[in-house]
Design a protein around this nucleic acid. Structure first.
Length: 845
RNA sequence: GCACCAGUACCUUAAUCGGUGAAAGGACCGGUCUUAAACACCGGUGAUCCGGGUUCGAGCCCCGGCUGGUGCACCA
């Protein structure tokens, strides 16, 4: 027999060139009339494809080379795409690049190489590697966000939002990264106040910037989380980020200045316990209120100090409370009390109205402040049951008390009423008196999208001396990004130096005008790319609505959990806004989401500084793409983190090697390939066992693929191969051919090259054109099985039982088993438990 | 501090409705093949975090604890 050696470096390029030259994975937007769907697409002899599926992995940012995380994402996505194709769907599985962004620009500053050049190199390297991995991509729809043909439509969407009032300029206290020299969105600053990209501590600056009105969509972004199939922890993160709270807006009046100050509170039931009033240092009225009072200088100093604090210093709840009295009072609307006003940094300008009513008896923070400044602390809610647990820092009176109870020390109309009930009554009263109303508040803020950087999509707005702010007319789009010489950030956009580009004519009056020089946050580019794939080469519109009807929404989206808030929230917002503008007829872009875990090495995140980076290119070079892909899916559940191990890779490589070799030998033994893949009609003995194992594997892999349990699916094929090896000489060649062909068919979504090869060797056919195999129910059930005989829950014997035996028969079989009799003899059977197909348990005394 | 998730062999994972003597791969050890080794094949060692409870029967359900991970955390 000839020597058979598994050689992925011969097999893989051979199949890749078949898929490339036949354009196997391309799909058109119209379902073909020839009964094969598209006429070309990857599937299914004879079957008409009535379903469409859109499988999408998150848009990669092309920087240098793909890393191991990309390999995992696309291994998962490709497995899903292949599975759905072979279940009978036309599958859209496209690829593109998130090509604008800071790393390319920073690289340009260091080296002088234009970002367009370094980006093109990175994209070429990504394309090369994705092809070498054998990912089934429809390359005809490839896009990159930095190409004018793409960002022309990013600009169009921006203008649509602008015309609808959803894009606007305002001056606000914004986050500024001193290292990257640009403003950032709230979402791009972590909990400790660091820049998400470079890690520098961000500052707060008062600047005029472009915002998108995502807050208008807070309620819908929250509510529609209930209708999408996303991992619960991602939904929880979005819910937390949106941060909805119900309560009331209550107006406190400063009589001395005749100004009303509304505050937001979730606890209007504690209004009678408000003993002071606090404003954020950034509140615009703080200086005005203190002017002319003895505290003016102290307030001034305090505010200056507070504004210079970092988020990290200021956000620390453990820190002692600080503040300064403003020297004014406001009136508590429910009881007319004059209560003192303070400025304190524990109140945030960004949330609510930037001012709060302080109820030290029932709020820990207000309590801490009141103790520090010797302010009155009043109990207005008494626990209704005596076992109520006091707060950790509670004093001898049990204050602050955050639980429920009945109102006390409030008002004769409310005292004695349960606080939840009183809450509604007090809000109703405020409403009647015109002093407040029920209100809902969100933590979510509007999305700051302008950036003072070069390598991004220009904002298509002009500033005309006569007409003011003017959108660039659609027919003049795209506003192309000009070439410049100096990318160095100087606190304003590098584009401002491109005088020829900046100075232009106003489209409405013809007078001189200047272009907006800020560029867009790159998250804008990636908030709509999934729409463009549906109609990627359309030059007249961003998309044809018919194309979206065919594919959107994305059936299965795949990516890292690090985008749980940023990208996934922005894309949902764009979808809803574009739907409101009549451009889409669906509300959610990603019907189902799968978030894959990180790949670590030696237990920690791969990074250049740690020197523990595993390069996908090196792995593919060593063992081939099929092994790399199978290993990364086999190493553990794909939604969990997985630690890379070179020994584990070798194990998987041996598995593929054994599979291919045994298949090649079997093909040789079987003679010419036979298209029909079926085992013997009436098998018995070892043949029957292997037939059973094969159908068990079909059932197991199909179920596992449906629930993304790729690791166990691969393990099931390993088990099947083990049985094939064990029984190779004792079963007929047909049986072996069927088992191995089926193994290749089942493993194809994970290891497409070697499985295509094996399937062709055995059948002469193309595995991707075959429908997914179906398990024969009759072979999943056994007509005879081993019945476990227990006495008092302990296994004492086993006997052969027939599958259709009734419980009475099973009991008799068990009682008759020799070793059972030894344990039962002379004792009384008090209970008999029968689990048909499994066991009988005799309980004796 | 709060919430969620997880703890199974030396490692990474499996065990579908609570049902056999807990499965796969790697690692390790031995055997066959080989001049020898690698590969391959055959065989082997070895585990349910701790303490209670429910049950005829618990890795799985309940209570408490321990350890690790993730998210949130001065948001009124």
């Amino acid at each position: 027999m000839a020597e058979h050696r598994y050689d992925p470096h011969e097999i893989e390029p051979r199949w890749q060139s078949v898929w490339a030259s036949e354009r196997t994975w391309e799909v058109s937007n119209e379902r073909g009339a020839d009964g094969r769907g598209d006429g070309r697409g990857g599937f299914a002899r004879g079957g008409s494809q009535t379903q469409s599926a859109y499988v999408l992995e998150m848009l990669p940012y092309p920087s240098g080379e793909p890393h191991i995380g990309h390999l995992k994402t696309y291994s998962v996505g490709d497995a899903i795409a292949h599975f759905r194709r072979r279940l009978g769907s036309r599958v859209l599985h496209p690829m593109g690049y998130d090509a604008f962004g800071l790393p390319a620009e920073n690289h340009a500053i260091r080296t002088g190489v234009h970002p367009r050049v370094s980006t093109a190199e990175s994209i070429a390297s990504f394309q090369r590697q994705f092809r070498s991995w054998g990912i089934s991509i429809d390359w005809s729809r490839e896009l990159a966000t930095h190409e004018p043909s793409y960002y022309r439509w990013t600009q169009w969407i921006f203008l649509e939002l602008f015309r609808a009032g959803l894009a606007y300029r305002k001056e606000a206290a914004v986050k500024w990264c001193p290292k990257d020299q640009t403003v950032l969105a709230n979402e791009q600053v972590d909990a400790e106040g660091h820049c998400e990209r470079c890690g520098a501590v961000v500052e707060v600056r008062q600047l005029e910037q472009w915002f998108l009105r995502i807050t208008d969509y807070a309620e819908r972004l929250l509510g529609d989380l209930d209708v999408i199939e996303w991992p619960e922890h991602v939904k929880t993160m979005q819910r937390n980020w949106i941060g909805r709270s119900e309560g009331a807006e209550v107006t406190f009046r400063c009589e001395e200045l005749g100004v009303d100050y509304p505050v937001f509170t979730t606890r209007p039931d504690t209004l009678f316990g408000a003993t002071f009033f606090v404003m954020a240092p950034e509140h615009p009225d703080v200086m005005r209120l203190s002017r002319g009072t003895p505290n003016e200088q102290a307030v001034h100093d305090y505010v200056n100090h507070a504004l210079n604090e970092t988020n990290e210093e200021r956000g620390n709840a453990e820190k002692p409370k600080t503040g300064v009295p403003l020297g004014r009072t406001v009136t508590n609307p429910v009881n007319g009390e004059q209560i003192p006003m303070y400025v304190a940094d524990y109140v945030l300008m960004e949330y609510g109205t930037g001012a709060i009513m302080a109820v030290p008896g029932h709020d820990e923070r207000d309590y801490a402040f009141a103790r520090a400044f010797q302010l009155p602390i009043r109990r207005v809610i008494a626990p209704s049951d005596s076992q109520a647990t006091p707060e950790p820092e509670a004093d001898e009176d049990g204050l602050p008390y955050g639980g429920d109870g009945v109102l006390v020390n409030s008002h004769p109309d409310f005292d004695g009423i349960g606080n939840r009930e009183a809450l509604g009554a007090i809000v109703a009263w405020l409403d009647r008196e015109g002093k407040g109303h029920a209100s809902v508040n969100y933590r979510l803020r509007d999305w700051l999208v302008s950036r003072q950087r070069y390598w991004g999509c220009p904002i298509p707005i002009l500033y005309c001396e006569r007409c003011g702010m003017v959108p660039v007319p659609d027919e003049q789009l795209p506003v192309e990004l000009p070439d410049i010489d100096d990318y160095t950030p100087k606190g304003r956009s590098p584009l401002a130096a491109a005088e020829e580009w900046v100075n232009t004519r106003c489209p409405s009056c013809g007078g001189s005008a200047r272009r907006e020089t800020d560029t867009m946050d790159t998250f804008v580019d990636s908030s709509w790319y999934f729409l463009r794939y549906c109609d990627a080469s359309n030059e007249r519109a961003a998309w044809d609505p018919a194309a979206l009807r065919e594919w959107m929404p994305v059936d299965q989206y795949i990516g890292g959990v690090e985008h749980a808030i940023l990208h996934l929230m922005y894309a949902r917002f764009f979808t809803k806004a574009l739907a409101d503008l009549g451009h889409l007829d669906f509300q959610e872009p990603f019907q189902a989401l799968f978030t894959q875990g990180m790949v670590t090495k030696d237990g920690s995140k791969m990074s250049k500084s740690k020197g523990n980076v595993v390069s996908p290119a090196a792995i593919v070079e060593r063992v081939g793409a099929d092994t790399a892909r199978c290993y990364i899916l086999f190493v553990g559940p794909p939604d969990q983190d997985a630690d890379w191990s070179d020994e584990g890779v070798d194990g998987v490589h041996r598995f593929l090697s054994r599979l291919w070799r045994l298949a090649a030998e079997t093909a040789e033994r079987a003679g010419a390939p036979v298209a029909e893949l079926a085992g013997p009609a009436a098998a018995e003995g070892d043949d029957l066992d292997l037939m059973r194992k094969t159908h068990w594997a079909i059932d197991k892999v199909s179920g596992d693929l449906r629930r993304f349990a790729f690791n166990t699916a691969i393990a099931a094929v390993m088990e099947l191969l083990n049985d094939c090896s064990r029984l190779r000489d004792s079963v007929g060649v047909d049986t072996l051919r069927f088992a191995l062909g089926t193994a290749a068919s089942l493993l194809f979504p994970f290891a497409p090259h070697v499985c295509s090869d094996i399937y062709e060797l055995l059948t002469g056919e193309r595995v991707w054109e075959q429908p997914w195999p179906e398990a024969d129910e009759a072979l999943l059930e056994r007509e005879v099985y081993e019945l476990v005989c227990q006495v008092n829950g302990k296994v004492r014997d086993r006997v052969q039982a027939s599958a259709d035996a009734v419980p009475e028969t099973l009991k008799d079989l068990c009682r008759a088993a020799p070793n059972v009799r030894a344990h039962v003899d002379g004792r009384e059977i008090v209970k008999e438990i029968v689990v048909p197909g499994k066991l009988v348990n005799l309980v004796v005394r």
